[in-house]
């Protein structure tokens, strides 16, 4: 077969699959979002944006992402560096650290609920230590900070490993010779990290950050388990429109807003971490 046609033939099945199960539903959602009785309109968008909970859920979602993603990035970098320096037992440690990846987000939320709820581990522990004399319900509107903290902790615990895995693979791709050259030319370990590892890790950082940021805007189950209605987020509102208010036009509009935010941040990340032409490994 013609060598110029062959690649396209080979990617055809995947293209068809994505077209059928992604592009087509996407078009349907877009039609729903922009549709109304009198044809094309922005009515659905106006409705969801004007709703009093929208700014709160937008702010909560962004705040959560802003709190969680940088901590995850720092942790994942630290853990990846440590794992990469290990000689023995490296695979074992990596497996253990990635266990939370195998747990669904709802299950993760429930695990952390078991820690923070009134009869949970945290209460028993504080009680046992004599810090409190009767169990406290932390996850209420009186403790918004604790609710936020619990959600952030659960997210960090649950989803840092996905970045870790990507970064470990990325660090493994950096040839050892660069570090030897850095050693000979006087770069300290910290300088080697900032001047060699970080810049050469840009492609992996891009992937890890884009993935994590998109997932952070889609946060739902962990919040539902720990915060319930105390802590509205965009995805939770979308769910409420669709299944509680049975307003699928509004739900579709919310979904597109989340998509828009995700695309915006993806472009920003790609831009900030771009590798100049000719400067890749």
């Amino acid at each position: 077969m013609n060598a110029r046609v062959l690649p396209y033939v080979l990617i055809l099945p995947v293209t068809l699959f994505l077209g059928l199960f992604f592009l087509y539903p996407f078009v349907l959602v877009a039609k729903q979002a922009f549709g109304s009785q009198e044809g094309w309109s922005l009515e659905n968008f106006r409705e969801v944006v004007d709703y009093w909970k929208f700014p709160i859920s937008l702010r909560n979602t962004l705040l959560l992402a802003a709190a969680v993603v940088p901590v995850q990035l720092a942790l994942a970098l630290l853990m990846a560096t440590m794992v990469s320096k290990m000689q023995k037992g490296r695979d074992l440690i990596l497996y253990i650290w990635t266990i939370p990846l195998g747990i669904s987000d709802l299950a993760a939320g429930i695990i952390w609920l078991a820690i923070f709820e009134q009869s949970g581990f945290l209460n028993s522990m504080l009680n046992g230590l004599g810090v409190i004399d009767k169990p406290v319900n932390f996850l209420t509107y009186q403790h918004p900070g604790v609710v936020f903290l619990a959600i952030a902790l659960a997210e960090i615990w649950r989803a840092t490993a996905i970045m870790l895995v990507i970064l470990v693979a990325g660090i493994g791709l950096i040839p050892k010779e660069y570090y030897e050259a850095a050693d000979v030319f006087g770069a300290s370990k910290w300088k080697q990290f900032t001047r060699i590892t970080l810049p050469m890790l840009r492609p992996s950082l891009q992937t890890a950050l884009v993935l994590r940021v998109i997932l952070a805007f889609e946060i739902f189950a962990v919040v539902a388990a720990l915060g319930g209605t105390l802590f509205p987020v965009l995805m939770g509102e979308t769910y409420a429109y669709q299944f509680d208010l049975l307003n699928s036009g509004a739900a579709a509009a919310m979904a597109l807003i989340i998509l828009g935010i995700s695309i915006g941040f993806t472009l920003i990340i790609l831009r900030i971490l771009r590798v100049p032409k000719g400067a890749s490994i």
Partner: peptide, 15 residues
């Protein structure tokens, strides 16, 4: 007080 030239050069690609 040494400097080194490596076999694969180890010229940093990002600089």
């Amino acid at each position: 007080g040494i400097a080194m030239v490596f076999q694969n050069y180890a010229v940093f690609p990002h600089l």
